[in-house]
Design a protein around this nucleic acid. Structure first.
Lengths: 133, 133
DNA sequence: CAGTATCCACGCTGATACTG
DNA sequence: CAGTATCAGCGTGGATACTG
């Protein structure tokens, strides 16, 4: 009987991995920008600052819950600025912060790779799927 | 009574969004590389080609199921090459393809941004959390 | 207008056990 | 060694309804 089972060792390793992820900036960033709505909001706001209702139209298909939730998270991260104007009814504007803007080149790098190489990926997939039925 | 309810309009928009995502190369790429294990395997294999069991050690905490599943997906996408050597017992080697290698600079760009700006994000979070209890 | 609150369903991960 | 098969649990997203 081993001192540790394989599962125990994996569990321990996974804990270590989680700690690692929590600290690893690159993974943390990936978790952010890969979020379904974050990237779309980033792009939408890169065009121009917008109000809440504008965004819900620009980023089609988003539910109010997710829109709020995502904007809140991005605000917390310092990526977007939320400005409330106390009119009646209230007006809330969202805009990218300077920090948020620095993310755009990264997004562009991703976009460039994708446009350059995703056809290759698509082709690879087709070949893969063809060779094994 | 409106021709379409808000929900119907959102549902329709979401369908459109899904179609958009399916075509948008950048989003497709993000979905790939943001995968929990894909990025780690990418980095592990960037160091050197490895066998299945090597990977399960290098990438600590991964279950056999996820390891196989992730490697299979990456192979299908043409990012890694799987080489079977019919010894006894079988030997299977995994390595990055040329296509897979082209992804590394993108990963590095992400890493660089993260190292440069994640401290700002962390600070923003702290401020945000402090101001609202 | 700009959200909040609640609930449900589903997908995906991980544990576990077994095999050529 | 290099996987496959099966199942349970949980987080996450979406629908929906309500509010200052």
């Amino acid at each position: 009987m081993p001192t540790q089972t394989a599962a125990q060792r994996r569990a321990e390793a996974r804990t270590a991995y989680n700690a690692y992820v929590a600290e690893c900036p690159a993974r943390a960033l990936l978790d952010r920008i890969s979020d379904k709505w974050v990237s779309l909001l980033l792009i939408a706001l890169a065009e121009s600052p917008q109000r809440y209702s504008d965004l819900s139209r620009t980023v089609a298909g988003v539910s109010p819950k997710m829109l709020t939730q995502t904007l809140r998270a991005m605000e917390r991260d310092g990526l977007v600025a939320r400005t409330v104007t106390p009119e009646v009814p209230v007006r809330v504007d969202y805009a990218l912060t300077a920090l948020g803007e620095t993310l755009l080149p990264v997004m562009r790098a991703i976009k460039t790779w994708a446009e350059t190489h995703m056809p290759d990926v698509a082709e690879a997939r087709t070949r893969f799927d063809e060779t094994r039925p």
